[in-house]
Design a protein around this nucleic acid. Structure first.
Lengths: 191, 191
DNA sequence: CTCATTTTGTAGCGATCGTTATAAAATGTC
DNA sequence: GACATTTTATAACGATCGCTACAAAATGAG
């Protein structure tokens, strides 16, 4: 009964996410999005109110389509060794794009409170998932260790984005786990 | 023999740094800088080539006028307890502006390599200063622990910028030190 | 085919971006 | 005071920003 849309919201949000993730909010223009979404500005605005509103939807999608699936894949309760699972969760998170939540937390200190709230919620979700995994591993004070891990993964994301990648980043991640889980055989550390 | 400048470079760089630090590179316009520096655009451009070049000088000044003095003040070799000194170094670093090196590392993944190099150099300087302090404290494997601390402080800066401040941030910092230095009396942790 | 409905593209809005040509203001020298 | 020198401000450049009137394209219903 009406003209069909070229792409559904999911596809558009995925493409927009790629842009915002690698270039950041400010550095991504509507013209960039026109190319990425294969859609001209008016069509973008009719579907997503404004650049800000689109970005908010993108942050939501990042959590639901990137963070949560990664949590389920690596931190699901079927993991044989929860600590090794956490290690893999860390290692597979590193890339030159860093983490959209990290990038947004830093970049948008002066941006709409709605976005900042979403970022904090996303970070909280990660922390709780890691805590649940730690509880399965019977570590002491899982809440504190989860905080540690949240801090560490944010720091690692910053260093990834700063250019410390590959072997360097791998070494840093091992260092984190060796320090936090010195008794674990996989990271059994000579001090 | 010529018209005197209203302000010397040091004053101008200090004011520009405030802007870039709290708002970021992209979000700071030349018009913003005109107000902050009390100087019109052509005067700014005659002194500092371009916005990029000015920002590079600002990053340098941040290291030499903020990072290095803080290192000397808190991590100088006259500290009675190097671990407590490191703790104070961390605690006094937290603010809603985060750290300019952290912010720049995240924001300018797609910016001139010269700036990225300066950021990495600044981070390296912090790491070496913390390592030297750790060596004075006779901890095991100071190089590894220094890496840990660098990761942790970057993570804490992200969370500061995300809105975790005050009591929350204080708690997080204590958690870091309690975990890394469980034997130290100041952070003697019930696991 | 006509019509109502929805989606899209063309073209362009005013505002602001980084930057600059040009001239005025402020000094020491003679 | 006239001059050379340096620093500054006035005014504006083309480009791009986020955004939008408006009309054309694409469907199903009648």
């Amino acid at each position: 009964m009406a003209r069909p849309a070229k792409h559904d919201d999911e596809v558009l949000l995925a493409r927009a996410m790629e842009q915002f993730w690698s270039r950041g909010y400010e550095a991504t223009s509507i013209r960039d999005l026109e190319e990425a979404l294969e859609l001209r500005a008016p069509a973008i605005y009719r579907r997503f109110e404004s650049k800000d509103a689109l970005f908010a939807r993108v942050v939501d999608r990042y959590v639901s389509a990137v963070v949560v699936p990664r949590i389920e894949r690596y931190l699901g309760d079927d993991a044989d060794d929860p600590i090794v699972a956490l290690y893999r969760f860390f290692r597979t998170a590193q890339s030159c794009r860093g983490c959209l939540l990290t990038n947004t937390a830093v970049e948008s200190a002066a941006r709409p409170p709605a976005v900042r709230r979403r970022v904090r919620a996303g970070l909280g979700r990660m922390r709780r998932a890691m805590q649940a995994t730690l509880e399965r591993a019977d570590v002491d004070d899982p809440a504190r260790v989860a905080e540690q891990l949240l801090i560490a993964i944010q720091g690692l994301m910053v260093l990834s984005r700063a250019g410390f990648e590959g072997a360097a980043a791998r070494g840093l991640t091992r260092t984190v786990f060796r320090s936090l889980f010195p008794a674990h055989p996989a990271f059994a550390g000579a001090a």
